[in-house]
Design a protein around this nucleic acid. Structure first.
Length: 320
DNA sequence: CGCATTTGACCCGT
DNA sequence: ACGGGTCAAATGCG
C-alpha cells in the first residue's frame, strides 16, 4: 500500500505553519554557516554553540515534517491513546488503584492501525542501541514461535512511542529474527548508550553497521560528497556529533537505528523523512574546508526547494 | 527492594 | 468470532 505523503487541499494552514518553521530552520542554518565560516573547528566553546544551532535546525525540521505529516501521524498517535482516557480513567486515578476497576481497564487500548513499519530480518536478534522493555508476548497463528512486543524504555519519562515486535521465523537453514519497528524514537538516549552503540557498530563492521546519510541538497549533479574518502570514517548515531579519524559528522534527527532505514518500508519520501535521521557530514582537512559550508548551503537550499515546490523535496540519500 | 519480564485478561479491528 | 496488540498483576532477578 502506498502512503500519500501530503495532500495539498485543506491543509494550507499546515503548509503555512510548516513554511514558518522551515524558515526558522533556514535562519538557524544560516547563522551556523556564518559562525562556522568565522571560526574553524577545534574550539570547544564554538562547537557547543554550533551544537545549539544544530539542535534548533533539527527542531525546525522535525516540527515541519510533523506538521506536514499530520493526517497520518496524528491518526497513529491518537490510535494509541487509551479509549477510556476520559472520565473513567481520571476517576480511578483519584480514588486510587482499585483492583477490580483496574482489571476492567485491561487492554483498553485501540490497536494500532496502518502505521509506518520498518522491518529487518537478521540471523540474530537486532541490537539497535535503544533500550527496550518487553510488554507482551503472543503466539501467532501459523507461526511456530511467539511474537514478542517491546516498547521504548523511556515511554513514560519522555513519552517516546516507539515500539518493536520481534518474531523468530522458522527458516530452513537457520532461524531468522524478524524485527518490526513502529513509530519513531522521540526520546533522547544518554551519552553512554550512544557511545556503546557507536563502539558496537564499529566493532561489528558488517552490513548492518553501515550508516545512511540523508543529504539536503539541490539536484546539482556535479556534487558528490560521498567519495571514497568519506566512506570509512563517517558514522552517525542519534543526535550527537562524532569525530572519526579526521572527519566530523553532524547528525540531525532521532532515529531508532540506521538499519531500519534500509528496509523496503521506507521506499517513499514520506516514510524516509518521517523515520530517518537527517545528517550532514564533512571533513575538517584543510583542502576540504569549504565542504561543510557547501553542504549547509545545500541543506538550506533543500529547504528553499521545499518551500518553492512542496511536492518535490529534492533530497537524496546515500549509503556510507 | 526496585525494576524487568511473564502471562492471562481484555479490547479492537476485521 | 477470531486474531492480534496492549495492559497490569504476578513473578523473577540482581
Amino acid at each position: 500500500m502506498e502512503k500519500a505523503f501530503y495532500l495539498p487541499e485543506n491543509v494550507t494552514g499546515d503548509q503555512m505553519r510548516a513554511r514558518e518553521v522551515l524558515s526558522d530552520g533556514r535562519e538557524f542554518a544560516d547563522q551556523l554557516r556564518v559562525m562556522l565560516s568565522s571560526q574553524r573547528f577545534g574550539d570547544v566553546d564554538h562547537t557547543l554553540s554550533a551544537g545549539d544551532l544544530v539542535s534548533k535546525i533539527l527542531d525546525s525540521f522535525e516540527k515541519s515534517l510533523l506538521i506536514l505529516q499530520l493526517p497520518s501521524s496524528l491518526a497513529d498517535e491518537v490510535s494509541q491513546v487509551p479509549v477510556n482516557s476520559g472520565g473513567l480513567k481520571s476517576e480511578e486515578l483519584d480514588s486510587g488503584p482499585s483492583p477490580k476497576m483496574v482489571k476492567d481497564r485491561r487492554g483498553c487500548f485501540r490497536r494500532r492501525r496502518t502505521s509506518e513499519a520498518d522491518t529487518k530480518v537478521s540471523s540474530t536478534p537486532v541490537e539497535d542501541g535503544h533500550a527496550w522493555r518487553k510488554y507482551g508476548q503472543k503466539s501467532i497463528l501459523n507461526a511456530k514461535h511467539p511474537r514478542h512486543y517491546y516498547r521504548c524504555t523511556h515511554k513514560f519519562e519522555q513519552g517516546c512511542l516507539a515500539t518493536k515486535q520481534v518474531q523468530k521465523t522458522e527458516e530452513d537453514p537457520s532461524p531468522m529474527y524478524r524485527t518490526t519497528y513502529y513509530g519513531r524514537h522521540t526520546c533522547k538516549p544518554n551519552y553512554t548508550d550512544h557511545n556503546q552503540f557507536y563502539l558496537d557498530s564499529m566493532d561489528q563492521r558488517d552490513s548492518s553497521s553501515k550508516s545512511i546519510l540523508l543529504n539536503f541538497r539541490q539536484n546539482t549533479p556535479n556534487f558528490s560528497p560521498l567519495n571514497d574518502t568519506y566512506k570509512d570514517h563517517s558514522t552517525s548515531i542519534g543526535n550527537y556529533n562524532f569525530v572519526t579519524s579526521d572527519h566530523i559528522l553532524t547528525t540531525f534527527g532521532s532515529s531508532s537505528t540506521k538499519t531500519e532505514l534500509l528496509s523496503p518500508a521506507g521506499s517513499d519520501h514520506g516514510d524516509v523523512i518521517s523515520s530517518g535521521m537527517y545528517s550532514c557530514s564533512t571533513s575538517t582537512t584543510p583542502d576540504q574546508t569549504t565542504s561543510f559550508d557547501d553542504q549547509l548551503d545545500m541543506m538550506v537550499a533543500g529547504v528553499v526547494n521545499f518551500e518553492d515546490d512542496g511536492d518535490d523535496l529534492a533530497m537524496d540519500s546515500f549509503l556510507l
